[in-house]
Write a protein that binds this DNA or RNA. Structure first.
Lengths: 196, 196, 196, 196
DNA sequence: GATGAATGAGACTTCATTCAT
DNA sequence: TATGAATGAAGTCTCATTCAT
C-alpha cells in the first residue's frame, strides 16, 4: 500500500485519489475530511481505509504517482552537460510536467504549511533544490540564485497563481516559460562559468 | 495552568496576536489550536475569547494592523505618475514593508488554501491585483504581466521562501529586490506606453 | 439582596429586572445569557453582579416582587366564606393580576421545566394548589377538580397562549374569565357541599 | 465509558430517542446534555452523532415518529361532517393519542419557550390550530373559541399537569376528557350553526 | 471489496462567576 | 457603582481511525 502501483482493482483506488486531490486543492488538506471524500464518491469512510492506510497515505500515494515524471526529468538533467541549451530544455520539460500535474502543484503551492509537516514535504523541498541546482551554476552569485528560483516560481504562477487572471491557459503557460527562460539566461550569462 | 501566574500586564491582547501569528506561520492556521496559543501564553482559552470574538478574529485583527502600511503604499502609488522611477520606488518600499511584516507574509504565503476561505482572503487578492496594476502598464502584454507578477513573487521569495537557503537575510532581500527591479524595468521598456 | 425591596439606587436594579424578564419570556431562561442582558442595558456583566448575587437571583427577585399581589389575593381569599360569589370574585381578581404581571406568567408558563428546578418552582406549585383549593370544595370529585384547574388554565390562555390569535387582548381576557367562571360554577353546583 | 460493554443490539438509534426524550421531559431540553444521554446509554457522545446529525435532530426525529398519529387524526377529522358526535369522537381519540405519546407532550408543554425556537415549534403550533379548527364552528364567538382551546388544555392537564395530584392516571384522563367534552358541547350548542 | 457502528481525542465556543481596581 | 480581565466547567460537534461482518 502506498507507492507500489497496485493493479487496478476496479478503479475505486484511482477515483479516491482523484476526488481527494481535487478537494485538497480546492479547500486545503486539513479542511477536507474523509467523510467529504467518501460522500462525493458515494462510498463509506471505511471503504477509503480498505484502499489506503491513512488520510496522509491518500495524498502520499497520489503524490508519488505524479512525482515520477519530475524524478525522471531530474535524472535526465543530471546526465546532460550544464549548458544554457540544457537549462532551457529543462524549463520546457518542467513546464509540460506542471501542466500535466497541475492539481497537485496547486495543492502543494497553497498548502505549504501543511505539506511541510507531511512526509512529502521533505521530498518536495529536495526536489526544488535539485531543480535549482540544475539550472544555476555551482558558484552562482546570490542574485543569480534568486533569478533561478524565481524562474521556477514564474512557471508555477503561469499555471495556477494566475488562474483568476484573464487569458488562455496555454498562452499564460507559454508567457511564464518565456519569462523563466529569460531569467535563467541572464543568470547563466552573468555567471563566470556560464559566460565563458 | 502555567505555574507562574504572570502579572496582568494589560498587553494581553497584543501578546495573543504575537503568539498566534508565530504559531500560525509555523504550523499553519488549522493545525494551531486555541489551546496551544493559550498554553504558550499561560492563560486559559476563555481568556482568548475575552479579547477576540473568534479564532479567525485573532488573525483578522493582526492582519488589519499589519496591512495598513501596504494600503498606504498603494495610496501613495496611485497618486504618483506611472514612471519607471515610481515603479522602482514602489518595489523598494514594498520590500521594506515585507521585511517589517515578515511573519504575516510567511503565513499568507504558506496557507493560501486556508486564507482564501477566510475574510482576509478577499483583501489579499485585491491587494496583489492593485500592486500589479501599479507596476505594469495598463495595456501590457501577457508576458509583461507575468514579469510584474513574478517580480512580486521574487520579493516574497527573498523574504521567506529562501529562508532555508544560505546567506544573510538582508542580502537575500536586496538580491530579490534587484531581480524584481530588473523584471519590472524590462516590462516597462517592452511596453508601447512605457517605451515611449 | 433578593426579596428586600431595596431603595432605588439609581434605577439600574429595576432596569435589569425588566430587561431580564423580557428576555427570559422571549427566549427562555437558559437561552438568555447574562451577556445578552448586560449588552441590552449597555453595562457589563460584572455590573449585574453588583446588583444580584446570581442569575437565578435576578429571576427570583423579580418574581418575588410580582408575586406579592397573588399572595395578597390568597390571603384575602382564605378569609372569605367559601361561597360561589367569593369564588367568582377570586377569579376576577386573579384575572386582573394576570394582566398586570403578564410577562412573568408568560415566562412561567413557557419555561415550566426550567422553573421546576429553580427556587421559585416550589413557590409556584404551592400557589397554584392554594388557588385551586380556594375555588374548589374540599371534597370535590375528581372531575370538579379538573374543572377548577382548567378554569385557571383558561385564564392563563386568555392572557398569553392565545397571543397569536386574533382579537383584542381585553376581550380575550374577558372571554377567558367567562369560561373560567362557568367551569367553577358548574363545579360548585355539582358538589355536595356547594350545591346545598 | 460504562463498565459493561453492552452488546450492539442494533437498536441503538431507538434507545437514544427513548433516553433522550425521557431526559428532555424530565430536565428540559437545554439542561440535558449529550454527555448525559450518552452516559446513560453506555456509549460515547460520538455515537450519538453517528445516528443523528445534531442534538435537535434527536428531538425532531422522535417528534416526527410520535406526531404521525395526530396527523392521521387530523386527516380523519377533516373528512367527517362537523357534527357534535364527530367532535366528541375527535376528543376521545385525541385523549388516547395523548396517553400513548405522553412523554412527548409533557416535554412540549414544559418547554414551550425552547420548542418555539426549534423546527418542531412551527409544526406544533399549526397542529393545535388545526385541532381547534376541527372542534369549533367556523364562525364561533370568541368565548366559544376559548372553550374549545381550553378543552384541549384540559386534556393535556389530565395527562401531565396533574401528575402530582392524587388519583389514578386513567381516571384523571377520563375526568379531563369529560370536562373537555362538556366545554366543546357547550360551544357547539351556543353557536348559530351548531345549535340548529 | 466494502459497510455499519462505534470510539477517543480534540476542536471551537459560551457561560456564570469572581475579584482587584 | 461599576469595569476589565480572567477562569473553570461544560457544551455541541467533527475527525481520523478501527473492527467485526
Amino acid at each position: 500500500m502506498g507507492s507500489t502501483p497496485q493493479p487496478r482493482r476496479g478503479n475505486t483506488r484511482q477515483r479516491i485519489q482523484d476526488v481527494a486531490l481535487d478537494l485538497f486543492a480546492e479547500q486545503g488538506y486539513e479542511k477536507t475530511s474523509l467523510r467529504e471524500i467518501a460522500e462525493r464518491l458515494g462510498v463509506t469512510k471505511a471503504a477509503l481505509y480498505y484502499h489506503f492506510k491513512t488520510k496522509e497515505d491518500i495524498l502520499t500515494s497520489t503524490f508519488d504517482d505524479m512525482n515520477r515524471p519530475i524524478e525522471e526529468l531530474l535524472e535526465w538533467g543530471r546526465q546532460q552537460p550544464r549548458t544554457l541549451e540544457t537549462k532551457k530544455e529543462i524549463l520546457v520539460r518542467y513546464s509540460e510536467v506542471l501542466e500535466t500535474a497541475a492539481p497537485l502543484f496547486v495543492f502543494v503551492q497553497e498548502n505549504q504549511a501543511t505539506v511541510r509537516e507531511l512526509k512529502i514535504g521533505h521530498t518536495i523541498k529536495h526536489r526544488v533544490i535539485a531543480l535549482v541546482d540544475l539550472i544555476k551554476e555551482p558558484d552562482a552569485a546570490l542574485t543569480d540564485q534568486v533569478r533561478c528560483f524565481t524562474a521556477l516560481m514564474a512557471m508555477h504562477a503561469g499555471v495556477f497563481a494566475l488562474k483568476d487572471a484573464e487569458g488562455d491557459p496555454g498562452e499564460k503557460r507559454r508567457a511564464a516559460l518565456e519569462v523563466a527562460v529569460e531569467l535563467v539566461t541572464r543568470a547563466h550569462e552573468q555567471d563566470p562559468g556560464g559566460a565563458a
